[in-house]
Design a protein around this nucleic acid. Structure first.
Lengths: 257, 257
DNA sequence: GTGAAACGTCGTACGGTGTTCGGGGTTGCG
DNA sequence: CGCAACCCCGAACACCGTACGACGTTTCAC
């Protein structure tokens, strides 16, 4: 349903790299492929990640539902096109300001993209969307770590680790961000849980209680809802941790830092 | 749809901690709540993560679809119960063999659980499922890092970072594992992509080509499909990286390692 | 210039989803 | 013993992604 990479790879690759084939016979298509993809992105953003119904998309474009399938083989392929298009919108990392700032920038840009387009987290990662913009970003990210003494496998491995961390932490952020929309109240949910929780876990989890007492679950500000601010704090904290680990590998390899 | 935490928190918490309320009037329910949850887990595992339809679950249990709603307010709450039940099946980390082995064990147990129950990755993380078994696992995981000189915030932050990494890397593994089931062939997909890819990216991504030449995309074995083995290799490599970072924090804090 | 093949369009239909409603049957308290 | 409370469930609602086939348009080959 929400998975990509399902259809004919040849057709998908052709759409990603070349767009719609020029038709020879018959009436011209009323729309450009980019218009379909852009409208899909807008529609998915508006409707939340329950996401994008082909009917609603067709309505927004002013065409019949079935006509969508002349532009795109199916929803899976459309999602792949959307992923590559979003990747096109993010800036490439700047190699002049150092690998650490660059890698942090990539992770933060990915987080921003996931917050703006929550459906990104629902499409496949293993069968990477092999579109031109996705690959260009990957190439530029690898370049940040290239030539610092790391082995080729380590370069790829470190980038993959940062990406995995980003994906996991970003999904926590996105879920925190969307949660209030589902139940209404901002922190209301937590507050309503508290009495039940305290009653049940009364004394059964001493370490949790101790850490809570020590402020381990506090957040850095109150402007945002608690759950969101906590997820953002954790994203930053964990990203530093992962980048420290990469720094350790580079230092061990003896390359320029 | 696949999100948890939607219904009445009181009802959900009561189900998680106390099970079904004892009925006073009317016929007894034919099933136990645990039977419903276990059947749901089995059904979701069998049907893949497209996952669990209330109709199919009711059929497997030999009851009408609507009857399910007398046990559980909705699908979201059922998913929460399933999460807590799966957590109950995983062993708690062993504190005697050191924090590193313990934390690795938690991450690997989480990976195993995600591979066995792919729908785990589709339920919310931010609004944690506050069930007894989930909390017990969290408490035991925090205990691995407690008393090693880290601040309370660092203990929580490091555990959160490992969890985020695990979630991201595990979703790559699970997607690699499920991908073949969707298109049939094991590595067939990659092989079919190659000719298109080489044609399009011809010379546009020199670093990618160089790293590929250097074997950066090789895998540690050929027994498993390529994409899955690569995801597993990356999981292990990145986990070491993250654990190194935690070790660095512990060393900097001067606590017992 | 004309016929026919190829193509875009889209109303309709199919099989699926989660959930609600209302009535009928069963149980157990007072 | 009566009646209120409860479980059960067939049917229906409002959606979803996608396939089919009729219809109108366009363009190429002759």
């Amino acid at each position: 349903m929400e998975h990509a990479g399902r259809g004919d790879p040849a057709r998908t690759m052709a759409l990603l790299w070349d767009g719609l084939p020029a038709a020879r016979r018959g009436p011209r298509q009323r729309l450009e492929l980019t218009a379909v993809v852009d409208a899909a992105i807008a529609e998915a953003g508006r409707a939340g990640p329950a996401a994008l119904s082909m009917r609603a998309l067709a309505r927004a474009l002013g065409i019949g539902t079935a006509s969508l399938y002349t532009y795109v083989p199916g929803k899976a392929e459309l999602l792949e096109l959307m992923v590559d298009r979003v990747a096109a919108g993010r800036p490439l990392p700047d190699p002049t300001s150092g690998w650490r700032a660059g890698l942090r920038g990539v992770a933060e840009a990915d987080l921003d993209a996931c917050r703006a387009h929550p459906w990104l987290l629902r499409v496949s990662t293993s069968r990477t969307v092999l579109g031109p913009h996705v690959l260009a970003r990957y190439e530029a990210t690898l370049a940040l770590l290239h030539g610092r003494g790391l082995s080729a496998a380590d370069v790829v491995g470190c980038v993959a680790a940062v990406e995995s961390y980003t994906r996991g932490a970003a999904s926590a952020v996105v879920e925190a961000e969307q949660a209030p929309e589902r139940t209404g109240g901002d922190d209301e949910w937590w507050e309503r849980q508290v009495p039940f929780l305290e009653e049940r876990m009364n004394g059964r989890f001493p370490l949790l209680a101790e850490l809570e007492e020590a402020g381990a679950f506090g957040v850095s500000g109150t402007a945002l809802p608690y759950a969101l601010q906590r997820a953002l704090d954790r994203f930053a904290h964990g990203l530093d941790l992962v980048l420290d680990a990469v720094a350790g590998r580079i230092a061990a390899a003896g390359g320029p830092h």
